[in-house]
Nucleic acid binder design. Structure first.
Length: 416
RNA sequence: GUGGGCGUAGCCGAGAGGUUUAAGGCGCCAGGUUGUGGCCCUGGAGAACGAGGGUUCGAAUCCCUCCGCUCACCCCA
């Protein structure tokens, strides 16, 4: 027996309500904020991700779905959404458009990981990217969008964590002092962190190992090392967030797992969540990324949110989802001639924009009405030999249990 | 990659070495008189118990391996 590959899943009809609710809410927010949709390929040149995400990140080190295609090209299934959008920005000369360029995407994301609650090998993200403007007001706009999305979806108890990790001018100095600090305590670090110390110092802040965690309490904070420009940017961002009534808390340990971030980083999580995959979304600024990918120096800021995790949290919080409407009518019949009439009638109803299911079986009327009941149709239409002769149908209101005979060419009118 | 829990029909779920030719419930199908649903009643289909190997006179029930699911760690959405 075949099964969906590990870490992937089929999204069955009962689940779809959550998905369309989330997608529609997200798209509506984007319309409201003037963000336009972009779709990029599911796979890209592997180097795009290695260069943007960073060689020493977990994603690149062990999680990418990479392969050589038959033409000998190194291909990677998209493990995140930002780099492809930036690639498209450069490729299509979007720097010629009015800046910033505001884009959003909904896409499948692939990472080879051990699946667990809220973590899959294929998951789906909604994300936005605002490219071509370094103003902190744009950071605030993006954070505001993320927040409003969650609020509009009906999620409660949200917390916004914020940090600034500086830019290429001030970060080296910070990293130096961070490295110096941890080197002093090298002996008490966990093995992972010893390794990270040399390669990816920032990530030590993220370690949940108790002894590392204790060290982190006293570790130098990135916001104390910001250059004047970054400090100003961060100050102004915070004042904009206050202006927009977005409550945030500073988190000095928040660094994010992708190398391209500069200055602003943030995460949003539902309150009271424990465990490691608490964040339903996050993002930040990446002012060097587009240049790294071969474009003109272009700042950018964005966020991404996991649709599966949103659905999970909507369920956890018992948020009511609008359900898809059942068909208006179910057409049942008895006999061959009646079936012909039923087929024609169903077709005409649909042309009048009335949703209709025809019972295609030759089963008993009783069985057909049972199906009508399960389908949730508001009306059942019954066509038998008598009705064929008199060119009428029986129109039955399922909820009331009442029925009337109407001329077959007046059915659409009777349903209005 | 590491560690824990689990694996019986579409779903839930009894059974824990021998009246099991594997309960029960949901769902599905068909009947309960002639052309009518939602309740009720009756009947039916559907699993050799994740796969393979072993222990035993005998295994869904014990052991081993593998696969899968799940939770946690790492990390992330």
């Amino acid at each position: 027996m075949y099964q969906a590959p590990r870490g992937t899943s089929d999204i069955l009809p009962p689940e779809q309500g959550y998905w369309s609710y989330i997608k529609q809410t997200a798209a509506a927010i984007c319309d409201l904020y003037g963000y336009q949709r972009i779709d990029t390929p599911a796979f890209e040149d592997a180097r795009l991700f290695v260069r943007s995400i960073g060689e020493d990140t977990d994603i690149v080190e062990k999680e990418m779905y990479s392969f050589e295609d038959k033409g000998g090209d190194q291909i990677t299934l998209r493990p995140e959404g930002t780099a492809p959008v930036c690639r498209a920005y450069v490729e299509h000369g979007m720097h010629n458009l009015p800046q910033p360029v505001r884009l959003y995407y909904m896409a499948a994301i692939f990472r080879y990981e051990r699946p667990q609650a809220g973590r899959y090998r294929e998951h789906h993200q909604f994300g936005v990217e605002a490219l071509g403007d370094a103003d902190p007001a744009l950071d605030a706009e993006v954070i505001d969008m993320a927040w409003q999305l969650y609020v509009n979806l009906g999620l409660k108890g949200l917390t916004l964590s914020l940090n600034s990790i500086g830019c290429s001018n001030c970060r080296p100095r910070y990293l130096e002092s961070l490295k110096a600090y941890y080197t002093q305590h090298k002996e008490s670090l966990c093995p992972d962190c010893k390794r990270r110390l040399a390669k990816n110092t920032l990530r030590l802040l993220d370690c949940k190992n108790p002894t590392c965690l204790a060290l982190t309490e006293q570790a130098p904070r990135s916001i104390d090392y910001l250059c004047p420009e970054c400090a100003d940017h961060f100050d102004r961002l915070r004042s904009y967030l206050n202006l927009l009534n977005l409550p945030f808390s500073l988190s000095h340990r928040l660094v994010r797992g992708l190398d391209y971030y500069t200055r602003t980083v943030f995460e949003i999580a539902p309150e009271g969540e424990t465990g490691s995959q608490v964040a339903i979304g996050g993002g930040g600024r990446y002012d060097n990324l587009i240049e790294q990918l071969g474009g003109k120096p272009t700042p950018g800021v964005g966020f991404g949110t996991g649709i599966e995790r949103l659905a999970l949290n909507l369920k956890k919080q018992d948020v009511a989802i609008p359900n898809s409407p059942p068909p208006t009518v179910f057409v049942a019949y008895l006999g061959k001639e009646a079936k012909d009439e039923a087929m024609k009638l169903t077709s005409r109803l649909r042309k009048s924009r009335i949703s209709a299911i025809a019972s295609l079986s030759e089963r008993s009327l009783k069985a057909q009405l049972k199906q009508a009941n399960i389908s949730g149709a508001r009306y059942a239409i019954i066509i038998g030999e008598d009705e064929v002769k008199s060119k009428t149908v029986v129109l039955r209101n399922m909820a009331k249990g009442e029925q009337q005979t109407v001329p077959i060419d007046k059915v659409a009118e009777a349903l209005r």
